Amino acid sequence: MALAPGLVATLYRAACLAELDALKPGNVHAFAPGHRMEVADFVASADASAPALAQAGAGVGARVRGGVAATMRTVGQNTNLGILLLCAPLAVAAERGTGPGDVLARLDKADSAGIFAAIRLANPGGLGDSVRHDVAGAAPDSLLEAMREAAPRDRIARAYVTDLSDIRTIGLPALEAARAAGLDAVWCTTAVHLAYLRGVPDSHVARKHGRDMAETVRREAETVVAGLDLATRPTRELLAFDRSLKDRHINPGTSADFTVATLFWDALAAAGANLDPDARTRRATP
């Protein structure tokens, strides 16, 4: 079943806002601001980027570039590059009535140019330089080749060459388990975020603070979560972890990006999009 662009835009915006409502240690959320950003910046970003993300007939690259450009015009800073990179293949898949793996397998030179342009516009911190496929240079003919090279150090790049495997193996199972445990929607979102935070080192933390710190944060999250029952709504404990991360200027932004994408995938599937993870043979994990 193919979904109408207007519905895709509505579900994308709803996923962005739902992520902001949840307590996500280290990120900006309704319980606490952080990193010189407020919830209002992300709400405005969702509103601004939704039309481009759901643009009828557009490819992945055009949607990401359009969403980033609209966001930069509106809030003047990068708030959603990672979100758009993860959500654009889902939006295209939902509109075409196919799976995201098929969309990713068909990325072309135009998609590569659009995404490299979006990255330059957003200018995310901690990218460093790459011997090949540096975003300051010309976009490569094969976006997947560039993503495959970056995959060992970046979970979003890895998502492009593994058919969004982290969403399928971490995010969606965590969301299902949280619902089965009777958690309300807000705490289900927190559960998804914590699953990413404790499951894999956060790429944004690694870029800004190094891989050792990313692994330290992962272990800290694992320790915090081990002693919590989210059914009790442990706001005090999670806010203490939130303050600890923000006091160290640590923002696990990749975990937040994957949380939005997980909610978006779930909403699209509930609306009838065919995003069955078993619909095609998976490419090997790099």
Rank of each mutant, 00 (worst) to 15 (best):
A240E: 14
S165I: 15
K246M: 00
R120G: 05
E149A: 15
P89I: 03
A88L: 05
E215L: 04
A271K: 13
G99Y: 00
K208V: 09
A22Y: 01
A279F: 00
D47P: 03
G210Y: 10
L23C: 10
R13S: 04
A62K: 05
L164T: 10
L144V: 13
A284C: 06
L86M: 07
A58I: 06
D266N: 15
L172G: 03
T223L: 13
V217F: 03
N78G: 09
I83K: 02
A178E: 12
L183C: 10
P124A: 07
I119H: 07
L84W: 01
A91C: 00
V186Q: 13
A40C: 01
A146L: 14
H29S: 09
I170Q: 13
A14F: 05
S45V: 04
N274G: 04
A181H: 04
V192Q: 03
A221Y: 02
Q77L: 09
Q55G: 09
G67M: 06
A105M: 01
G128W: 14
A32F: 03
R248V: 04
T223G: 07
A151I: 11
G227C: 10
I170L: 15
A214L: 13
A50D: 09
A46Q: 00
T216F: 00
M72Y: 06
L107H: 11
A22T: 01
G26N: 05
H209K: 15
V224K: 03
D202K: 07
A52K: 01
A178G: 15
S49W: 02
G6W: 07
A117P: 06
P5G: 01
R106Q: 14
V135P: 07
T235P: 06
V103M: 02
A138H: 14
A226R: 12
R243E: 06
E19H: 08
D41N: 09
L194V: 11
P201M: 10
G76P: 04
R13T: 06
V217R: 02
L275M: 04
A30W: 10
T71C: 00
N27H: 02
G61F: 12
G97N: 04
A136S: 12
L164P: 03
A174Q: 15
A273Y: 13
A62I: 12
G253T: 00
V205G: 08
V260F: 06
R179H: 15
Y12H: 08
F264P: 01
M37S: 13
A269V: 12
V217M: 06
A267W: 09
G76S: 08
T162Q: 13
V64D: 02
T79Q: 07
G97C: 04
L20A: 11
A136N: 11
A269G: 14
N78R: 08
G272W: 12
A50P: 08
A150I: 10
F241C: 00
Q77I: 01
Q55R: 13
R211N: 04
R106A: 15
Y12P: 02
K208W: 07
G6D: 13
